[in-house]
Amino acid sequence: MPTPDDVKRFIEAGMPGARVSVIGDGHHFEAEIVSSAFADKSLVEQHQMVYRALGDKMKQEIHALSLRTKVPE
């Protein structure tokens, strides 16, 4: 069962330079991701970028992940 720290590392590995914070209980996670790569992207595209970073882990290990994506101020 992945920990919030695992999820944080998974996202950071797929999105270099992103600032990531994750809380969760092993089944449900909430992640906040701040990345300049989100600039000029729609919300759908931003979330798809995070899902792409997680790849197959999203299908197998992570049951539910709530995302908040932001561009750095």
């Binding site: 919300l43 759908v44 979330h47 798809q48 899902y51 999203m58 299908k59 995302l67």
Partner: peptide, 20 residues
């Protein structure tokens, strides 16, 4: 290209999941 449920579509266009 979206790994989670629920998914909302309006007029054929993918709008997003629960967070969006």
């Amino acid at each position: 290209n979206w790994p989670t449920i629920p998914q909302l579509y309006i007029k054929g266009q993918f709008i997003g999941g629960c967070d969006i």
